[in-house]
């Protein structure tokens, strides 16, 4: 079986290649195979004391209200113990007239994250090896202060202090915006590059999508047909200077766009902040961002 890495807002695991992401939330992922739900993950940071039993009770009440399911706590299956050894876990199972499921509420004492993972079973149960592999690959915190974001065909490495504030996965265009204090990172991905760059070059395309005109304020750093980058200084009128000083400071906004010919994709990164942007920081963001 082929496996694929999925990483979103702090959690990471491997799923079968035939599964697809069908629902995305800030702290929620739902996977399906041929329109049938397969697995669901919900997670969140816990402040204070965590109780598995109260979480299960809450979940049971929600499930009963929604689908009339009968959720009950069960002993942790022996084959789940090794993959979940780093977590404090409680297993559960439920069934309704059409579908049944089993899962676990996990609590990580290191990062104080509680996660609910459940596997849906409509026709046949998931194989033990499959569940074991998913649980064994599950992580809810990074070890190097950088968080992996890997969904569909993009993969990015973003400093852990940055929070995701906006995301958009439209056909042809993805956008992820992260923020930390006054700093903002925007990641873009467009496809198909062969069509988008048919009547314009990468520079013209970048200007069009970022909606800034080529003015004196634009200082190109490096330019080649498959790579453009700029540092855009705040616009000159006094009110704009005053506003940008108040909101973001006087530092230039950094843009980099590159065309990955072999994947037929265009990637874009925008970094804005109050202080001058460190080139090493820019390079680390751009180097960690790409196609899988």
């Amino acid at each position: 079986m082929d496996w694929r890495e999925i990483a979103w807002n702090g959690v990471r695991c491997e799923i079968p290649d035939s599964w697809e992401v069908v629902k995305i939330g800030l702290r929620y992922l739902m996977f399906a195979e041929k329109s049938a739900p397969m697995m669901e993950i919900k997670w969140g940071q816990i402040r204070g004391k965590f109780s598995h039993h109260s979480q299960l009770r809450r979940l049971a009440m929600q499930q009963r209200k929604k689908f009339g399911k009968t959720l009950k706590e069960i002993p942790l299956p022996p084959e789940w113990r090794t993959p979940l050894s780093e977590f404090i876990s409680v297993a559960f199972s439920w069934h309704s007239q059409t579908i049944s499921g089993s899962g676990a509420v996990l609590y990580c004492p290191t990062c104080k994250t509680a996660t609910l993972m459940q596997f849906f079973q409509k026709h046949s149960a998931h194989s033990t090896a499959l569940v074991q592999h998913i649980l064994g690959s599950f992580q809810d915190h990074s070890r190097d202060n950088r968080v992996i974001w890997a969904l569909f065909d993009i993969r990015a490495l973003i400093p852990a202090e940055f929070d995701l504030i906006k995301y958009r996965f439209d056909a042809g265009q993805y956008e992820l915006i992260f923020s930390y204090k006054k700093q903002k990172i925007t990641l873009w991905r467009w496809v198909p590059a062969s069509v988008l760059l048919h009547k314009q070059n990468l520079e013209e395309f970048a200007h069009r999508v970022t909606r800034f005109a080529l003015k004196k304020t634009v200082a190109p750093v490096r330019a080649d047909p498959d790579w453009v980058e700029w540092e855009v200084l705040p616009s000159t009128p006094w009110w704009s200077r005053w506003r940008s000083r108040r909101l973001l400071g006087h530092a230039p906004t950094y843009y980099r766009f590159w065309h990955l010919r072999e994947k037929n994709r265009i990637f874009g990164v925008k970094i804005e902040g109050k202080q001058a942007i460190d080139s090493e920081f820019v390079n680390s963001i751009c180097a960690g961002y790409g196609s899988v």
Binding site: A171, G172, V191
Partner: peptide, 15 residues
Amino acid sequence: KYQFHLKEAEVSVTR
């Protein structure tokens, strides 16, 4: 043809 992700292609073609 366009190296789209299959899910992305499904959304745009069906639309």
